[in-house]
Structures are given as C-alpha cells and as structure tokens.
C-alpha cells in the first residue's frame, strides 16, 4: 500500500475517531460549564414570557438592522457569504452527504458539483476578505489576538484543502483527501477550546439576549 493511501486510512480511521471524541467531549464540557452556572431568580414582574422572544432572537439576530447594515454593510455581507458558503458546502456536497449517511443513516439531496465548486471559491474569497478586514480595520485590529487568527486559519484550511482535493491540485489524490480530512480534524480539536464554540453557543447567547429583553417587553 502506498504511503499516501496509508495516510488517508490513518486520517479516516484512528485520527478521525480521536478528533471526534475530543470535539464531542470538549464541546459537552463547554456546554456544561455554561449551563451549570445558571441564573439568579428574577423577582421583577415580567411584561412577557422569555421562551418566545428568546427563540425569535435566535433567528432574527442573523439579520442586521437597517442602521447596522448601512454602517457595516461590508462586514455583514462578507460574514453572510462565507458562513452560508461553509454551511452549504458542508451539508450539500454529495460526498459529505454520503459520509453523513454512512455515520448517521440519514441523507438528503445535494447540489451539483459545479455549484458546490463555485460556492467553495466564493467562501474562500469571503474568508480572505474577512482576514484582510481584520488586519486593516482599526476596531478589528484592536480586538484581534492570536486566537482570532488561529480560528481563521483552521477554518480556511478546511475549505482550502477541500477545494484542492476536489480539483486534484495535489497528487496523489489520497494525499489530497487525507490532508482535507486532517484539516477537518484539526478544526474539530481546536473548536471546543476556542471561539469556534460560537457555532453552538451563539444560539444560546441569542436566546438569553432575547429572553432578557423579551421579559421586559422588548423584541431584541
């Protein structure tokens, strides 16, 4: 068996199991360490319930208010482009669906490969734009630390190696695919210990935001 095939099998096998385990346990720990803190009882008379407004904010906070869009249109659009692109490619690329089917037994229709290809390219462009913006915008420069660049890099690598493997830009193919899987594993391992957790916790944060404001009669 060639070295590249061995590498692929290693990334698909042992390494993937380890990465998945670290991701699952790490993320579980993160969620537990959030929820075990709880909230103090609130004795103020509520104007409205919390669940409805909380769930509404989980959805509505995906869209910027007109004033924010006017002031930060580039940020909002670039964020949308690459987040949406990432999600589409993750869940609607046919080989990804096949993988999900083999693990969870559920499947859904995918998008044609050329469409996925174009979206991947757009996602990469969006991520590059986001990086340039981070390096040049005064507020982002002020806020950014090592973790911001690390999380950008591991995200970018996942999409880039996927794009490279699809276009056979590295040979042999098992090596290219192995690199893609390896980058996914790095992403999974890094996720619970960095701000990549926002993939899950942002929905919790939005719910709390909506619930806190909703209780006071404000749809946030």
């Amino acid at each position: 068996m060639s070295d590249s095939m061995e590498f692929l099998l290693f990334t698909k096998g042992t390494l993937f199991n380890w990465a998945l385990a670290i991701f699952a346990l790490g993320m579980l720990a993160r969620l537990v360490e959030i929820f075990w803190l709880g909230r103090a009882p609130n004795y103020a008379e509520a104007r409205a319930g919390q669940w409805g407004p909380g769930l509404r904010t989980v959805f509505t906070r995906s869209f910027a208010d007109p004033g924010t869009f006017k002031r930060s249109g580039f940020d909002v659009l670039v964020g949308w482009v690459w987040h949406l692109g990432f999600i589409i490619v993750l869940f609607l690329f046919i080989p990804h669906i096949e993988l999900i089917k083999s693990v969870f037994g559920v499947a859904w229709p995918g998008l044609p490969n050329p469409v996925i290809d174009a979206i991947s390219a757009l996602t990469l462009a969006g991520l590059v734009a986001a990086l340039v913006h981070r390096l040049t915008h005064p507020v982002k420069k002020h806020l950014s630390d090592f973790e911001d660049y690390l999380t950008w890099a591991v995200t970018f690598l996942v999409v880039l190696t996927g794009y490279v493997a699809y276009h056979r830009l590295i040979n042999p193919y098992p090596l290219a695919l192995g690199l893609h899987i390896l980058s996914v594993e790095i992403f999974l391992v890094v996720l619970p210990f960095t701000k990549l957790t926002h993939m899950f916790t942002a929905f919790i944060a939005r719910w709390y935001n909506g619930a806190i404001f909703g209780r006071k009669g404000v749809q946030s």
Binding site: D75, R134, L143, K195, T197, H198, I204
Partner: peptide, 9 residues
C-alpha cells in the same frame, strides 16, 4: 463570552 468572535460590530 464563549460566542464573541471579535467582529467589532
């Protein structure tokens, strides 16, 4: 804090 991605908005 777990969710902040330093977007600066």
């Amino acid at each position: 804090f777990s969710s902040c991605v330093h977007c600066g908005l």
